[in-house]
Nucleic acid binder design. Structure first.
Length: 262
DNA sequence: CACAGCTCCTGGCAGC
DNA sequence: TGCTGCCAGGAGCTGT
């Protein structure tokens, strides 16, 4: 499922494929994915000037600067082109370009969303900082993680840091040697430093790998090899050999090593 | 206000 | 084999 690194990769692919193309029509096949009040007809005739990203949101920018198309892939959303998309069973919206190419928004589980937005600052006003930007500092973490909630829940809170999902939260906590159940209040200054470092390195490495060694992010095929804890419940910890445990925390499957993350 | 828990959705898989 | 029912989870919403 796409998290920030995968979304970043999708944005780069989209930028290469659709920048400069002009929409001739937009056909919302499934109303919930593209809500009726967002009036997709407004996009007709607009030329895509760039594709960018905020957290896990994809932003299509147009020649008309006060209109944006925002896409969120959620669990299973994807953009497919031409023959790759036309036979897909889960087409939710079809974008026709004037050069006769076609972009399909497909999403098996119907969680993904498309939305038209005229004010990006307003749209993202509740969104937390970008984890790969300069805003993520030890001082920021020290201040914003002061909460009785679990550190795992805090890492997943998009209004604090925007873009960390369930998989990378588990990986970041493993590398930081922090038990996911601990409260934000209990995290020491030394651990905050490790957290800050690992948030950046885990996400950046995933971006690099998704773009280079794992082009098919949809199936990060060898999970067992790639991840330390995610998807490895009951298997041996790569550091100490103890069984990786899986629990539910804040409604999320949470994998960790009880020895390395006491 | 802060936080926990529910909801959406469907393919895949464990268990019987 | 064939069925049932649970699980996966991002983010918005509802309830406490």
């Amino acid at each position: 499922m796409p998290e920030l690194p995968e979304v970043e990769t999708v944005v780069r692919e989209l930028q290469a494929k659709v920048k400069g193309k002009t929409l001739s029509s937009v056909d919302p096949v499934f109303a919930k994915v593209f809500p009726p009040d967002s009036d997709s007809k407004k996009l007709q005739g607009l030329t895509i000037s760039s594709v960018s990203r905020r957290a896990k949101y994809i932003i299509f920018n147009f020649s008309q600067e006060d209109l944006h198309l925002i896409a969120h892939l959620r669990m299973t959303g994807e953009f497919l082109f031409d023959q790759d998309g036309e036979n897909n069973r889960f087409i939710r919206c079809i974008f026709h370009f004037t050069d006769r190419t076609v972009m399909y928004f497909c999403d098996m589980r119907k969680f993904g969303r498309l939305e038209i937005c005229s004010d990006l600052a307003e749209y993202f006003k509740k969104m937390g900082i970008e984890p790969l930007g300069d805003d993520l500092t030890v001082a920021f973490l020290q201040k914003r993680l002061q909460s009785s909630r679990s550190i795992k829940a805090l890492l997943l809170d998009q209004s604090l840091i925007a873009g960390i999902g369930n998989i990378y939260a588990d990986e970041i906590l493993f590398l930081s040697k922090i038990n996911p159940q601990r409260s934000g209040l209990q995290i020491t200054a030394k651990e905050l430093l490790a957290l800050k470092k690992n948030i950046k390195t885990v996400l950046q490495k995933a971006i690099d790998d998704t773009g280079i060694t794992l082009p098919d992010y949809r199936e990060r095929a060898n999970k067992d090899f790639y991840y330390n804890v995610y998807g490895r419940a009951k298997q041996a910890c790569k550091i100490c050999g103890h069984k990786i445990e899986k629990i539910r925390l804040g409604g999320r499957g949470t994998n960790f090593c009880p020895v390395c993350q006491p």
